[in-house]
Design a protein around this nucleic acid. Sequence first.
DNA 1: AAAGAAAATGCAACCGAGTCTCAGAAGATT
DNA 2: AATCTTCTGAGACTCGGTTGCATTTTCTTT
Lengths: 218, 218
Amino acid sequence: MDELPGLRERKKERTRNLIAHEALRLFREKGFDEVSVVEVAAAAEVSKATLFRYFPAKEDLVLHRFADHLGEAARVVRERPPGLTPTAALRAHFLDRLAARDPITGLNDHPDVLSFMDLLYGTPSLQTGLVQRYRSQEIDALAEALPDVADSTPLTRRLAATHLIVVQQELGMENWRTMAAGRTADEAYDDAVAEAERAYGQLMTGLDTVFPAGTGGG
Amino acid sequence: MDELPGLRERKKERTRNLIAHEALRLFREKGFDEVSVVEVAAAAEVSKATLFRYFPAKEDLVLHRFADHLGEAARVVRERPPGLTPTAALRAHFLDRLAARDPITGLNDHPDVLSFMDLLYGTPSLQTGLVQRYRSQEIDALAEALPDVADSTPLTRRLAATHLIVVQQELGMENWRTMAAGRTADEAYDDAVAEAERAYGQLMTGLDTVFPAGTGGG
DNA sequence: AAAGAAAATGCAACCGAGTCTCAGAAGATT
DNA sequence: AATCTTCTGAGACTCGGTTGCATTTTCTTT
């Protein structure tokens, strides 16, 4: 059994952080698509092959920053206090993170956070590539965390998980849009809470209480 | 004003179909990732550059097959009879397509349809690339088609649209899985109806009527 | 029908992401 | 110190996608 991380492991960790750090610096500076991986590799003083040994794809250089949030929704549901439904637990958790101005909610106007979100949400290739993949992972994890109730099928759980994750991530994007439009986090807080409550409420009560029957017009 | 399509247009249409046809033939035969675009171009007797003039990306060679279904959900909601909510309209439409064994529901065991779905859903790169993109387009279109009710925000509509499209597409995938497992469409029909009703019902009544409060266990 | 504008094509070079091979360097092990 | 393992750099390679240019094909004009 190996106890403490040897020199090799520490060096690997340092290299990994260095690469991601240089990558993010360049991406912010020039845009994701305007920076090639060789440029990143050069900035981190490693070879292109080495870069790909640490990160399976260019997108993952960005993922590194919020890798620790992976599976958070699943955890929240698993550890929810008695008396709370999964939806209620996730709602409460989001509101809590909102109050704390957690970057993951999008409601954070620190320049550092903001420029990162600009990169993440404002780059189409990242939006469709990375955000979608992150979403899938969250959904898979959450689907497993949902209770296996009487008349639920794998599909039922998967669908519920999707609905829940989508709400959370869309709320995050919406808050980012608000920040990107120039409002401060404190200014936007009340609206953000209202939107969150509306979005989760819509899930709890069902869509038909929100969107009505047709007008009959041709 | 040009009335009927000239020779040029007809030839372009023919070429376009030929390329997509050859592409699909090769993809089915050897798998999406095992066929290069130059191979497809050669089979269709055009140059690589020409292929990309007709299709912006390799994935779009596959999209061609169901391009006519684009915006279907949005249309269904727009043209729904009075008395039906958007959710109810989409539910009814899906059940109708299910009864007709429409390939888009996944409930179709014709070898031709089946091999296409195997390709589409069984290829990771297509799943994450194409299906996700198709989903986004459907969501965007549907979000615009949803009625602009009293306390709805752009986000509200976008979320509702996402929930609705996701249900439809996940039901499709689930039916494909059933087909891929060897059941016939007729055998699976009753179950497919039940799943669809459960999935849409879950949306109408809200998640909290399905997934209960926590158990309190650590 | 001939001539010229407009559009479509093929060719070839190019770019960037990602993989592979292989030789050599650096950490771990005795 | 010697060996064994792991990590790295260099470079060639594949593939998706783009670009510039010369050539051909279709449409239009007279």
